[in-house]
Design a binder for these strands. Structure first.
Lengths: 135, 135
DNA sequence: CTCTGTGCAAAGCGTTTGCAAACGA
DNA sequence: TCGTTTGCAAACGCTTTGCACAGAG
């Protein structure tokens, strides 16, 4: 397991074993729900509390270390903060992929048309992945 | 108040006074949270229960009469089902606007590139509306 | 050494459920 | 009339809080 101490400290988060493990899981899995994260953490810390998971998730969000991804008709997942990107979600197996889509012209046109100062764009495409289409 | 009996029945929903009022509020407001809907309903039905609100919202969603809109960093709102569209949200006053954006080429390209059968696209642009920029 | 983080138990809050009475068709 | 809906109260599940102890810096 890579040492993520510096990654945490860059976001003003003390490096505790629990946080290092959460970070490692996020790097490895990419996207994860609270429930699955808790199950995975239990394997490493047999008496970890859900309260610890929630406290850390909330603190990590506040410090912009991670972000919540709200998915239509599904539970939220969390991911490490990275450059802006969109998501491709399989409605059957719930796999989530990061995809790079250029929304600049859409953002510019919409800003102009509605006199909005657009700060964030959030695109989620949902459907069936290659594997789930065949079942 | 317009009579929405037929709109409800087209979605296999019996026209009760409570449902007609919910429908009217949705037509009028466009987008509404559970909380605000309850407050508005209380003005018309002084003993309406939150359980009734939830039961109706859930049934209306099941019957595709309305849809949930999950907004990043904010509460969900509900809207009447209409043709696919995107949303523009003000992060300050929480106003939600429907916008028409052509995502066809993005959907096609992404489908091809990732071998996904994309069924839904969900785009939310967030920022400051004209009014809130000036404050 | 000091301040923060952890685990536990309890509390909180939004949502759902069960039931009897009221109502729509 | 019959099946559905309503309102109420209780239950539920997820999330947060308070506290004493442990641990990071």
């Amino acid at each position: 397991m890579i040492n993520y101490t510096n990654n945490l400290r860059e976001h003003n988060l003390k490096a505790t074993p629990q946080r290092l493990a959460i970070t490692d899981i996020l790097y490895t899995k990419g996207h994860i729900s609270v429930e699955v994260l808790y199950e995975m953490m239990l394997k490493k810390f047999n008496s970890i509390s859900l309260a610890t998971i929630y406290k850390n998730i909330n603190l990590m969000i506040e410090n912009s270390f991670i972000q919540e991804v709200k998915i239509p008709n599904a539970k939220s997942v969390y991911e490490l903060t990275k450059e802006e990107h969109s998501h491709l979600v399989c409605q059957k197996c719930n796999k989530v992929l990061d995809i790079k889509i250029d929304l600049d012209s859409i953002v510019t046109q919409t800003s102009d048309a509605y006199h909005f100062n657009i700060k964030n764009s959030n695109l989620i495409l949902s459907g069936l992945c290659q594997n789930c289409q065949q079942l």
